[in-house]
């Protein structure tokens, strides 16, 4: 198929960016979205124009490295990651706009690449269970009810891609944060630090400049791992409890 691509290009964080238009031809529907960009980049390189920078690594939908706004939707029209989106989701002759994540805490580094280190700093503020190597009891010492274990797993599948932030009109990272609070809070091992974790992580979230949640739900609609909105209720509940207990 033949497509018109409008792609954001920006030399670095300090420079201004702009949309550029490229025509591509002979795109097969079996290509992934990123392979389509690979094909364009090969052509740009041969024409002497610097290829477009975009992030990806696993290309299997699990590392969370990729992420593009495609026609205004985070990761495009399907519930999946950008790397798992295939060209059969588009039709011949279509115009596609491609932009980086837009959020103040995710500055653009170049073209379609952004800096998501704010997520790492949120984890540093409390997104862990404190146990030194070698200090663990036998794994069967504490049974975990299957429902809690399954729920913990379901929300631990978050890949830290940042689509929830990019999709949110408030630029909130509440879905990402709620997923971590719920993952660790569902498990007996996570109880000792439950109060301090939520208080410190919320403080870091706000410090990074992410916005507040007003229950719009765009985050969960964009999330490739279908993290449910109720993790944000859990987040709020844990925060209330912690504050009540004097944290």
């Amino acid at each position: 198929m033949k497509l018109t691509l409008k792609i954001w290009r920006q030399a670095d964080t300090a420079s201004d960016g702009a949309m550029h238009t490229y025509e591509v031809d002979e795109i097969s529907e079996d290509m992934s979205f990123l392979e389509m960009l690979d094909v364009l980049n090969e052509r740009l390189n041969s024409e002497g124009e610097e290829p477009i920078a975009f992030d990806s690594d696993c290309r299997e939908g699990i590392c969370g490295m990729c992420g593009l706004m495609i026609n205004g939707e985070a990761h495009g029209p399907q519930v999946t990651t950008t790397c798992q989106l295939h060209m059969r989701s588009f039709s011949d002759g279509e115009t596609i706009t491609i932009e980086p994540w837009r959020a103040d805490p995710f500055p653009v580094l170049k073209d379609l690449c952004v800096d998501r280190s704010a997520f790492d700093r949120m984890i540093q503020s409390g997104g862990y269970i404190s146990v030194n190597t070698g200090a663990a009891p036998d794994a069967h010492a504490t049974p975990v009810p299957k429902d809690n274990a399954d729920r913990a797993f379901d929300v631990a599948t978050c890949i830290g891609c940042g689509a929830c932030v990019a999709a949110c009109p408030n630029g909130s990272a509440s879905l990402f944060l709620g997923a971590k609070i719920t993952h660790l809070g569902e498990l007996p091992q996570g109880q000792a630090e439950r109060d301090s974790r939520v208080v410190n992580m919320v403080a870091q979230h706000d410090h990074e400049g992410f916005g507040g949640c007003t229950n719009i739900g765009e985050c969960t609609a964009a999330c490739p791992k279908e993290i449910p909105l109720d993790v944000i209720s859990q987040l709020n509940k844990d925060l209330r409890h912690a504050i009540r207990r004097g944290y």
């Binding site: 269970i129 146990v131 070698g134 663990a136 049974p143 299957k146 274990a149 913990a152 631990a156 660790l184």
Partner: peptide, 22 residues
């Protein structure tokens, strides 16, 4: 054997049976 203990203590959500064991 120590790896599994360590990971469970860190909160790695391994699959479990109905009795709550791994």
């Amino acid at each position: 054997v120590n790896i599994i203990d360590q990971c469970v203590a860190q909160g790695v959500p391994f699959a479990r049976e109905y009795g709550g064991l791994l």
